[in-house]
Amino acid sequence: MKKTAKTEGNVFSIVNKIEETHKKDLGLKVPSDYFSKSKADILSKLPSEEKKKGIKRMYFIVPIAAAITILFTLTFLKPNLLPSFNNEIVLDTIEKIKNNNLVEADMLTLTDDISIASLFVEDDKIDAFVDKHIVEDIIYDELNSN
């Protein structure tokens, strides 16, 4: 069992010696032309740059497409879900608060725009109101729409 392969020197001549040693000492062989076929196989399986770029582009395209879809849906199909910034409602609400004509809890039921009114009410009261009214409204709408 004599060692023949050396690391010093040309890489390509080492490769031949390594193969020779493996065949001679260990009886291992490879199919003819294996390495050139394997090289082609490996190169064909490498992830291509175009695919990578495609994936990178998808990172931007998907959220943009989703945002456009949501805006389209809310604008044309469910316009009532969009918060309406009606100046009259805002001014009316502020005026009522100034005059102390409104207690906080009533604000949510009396005003038409919950998203604006909720700015003046504490969180726990909003939660209670949502539990009591909004959920019921959603269920009612769902039932009527079917």
Partner: peptide, 18 residues
């Protein structure tokens, strides 16, 4: 990468094969 394969494919193959 082609060059890398030429340099290392056979050496790594024998390393793995054993």
């Amino acid at each position: 990468f082609n060059k890398l394969l030429d340099m290392y494919q056979e050496r790594l193959y024998w390393h793995i094969r054993k």
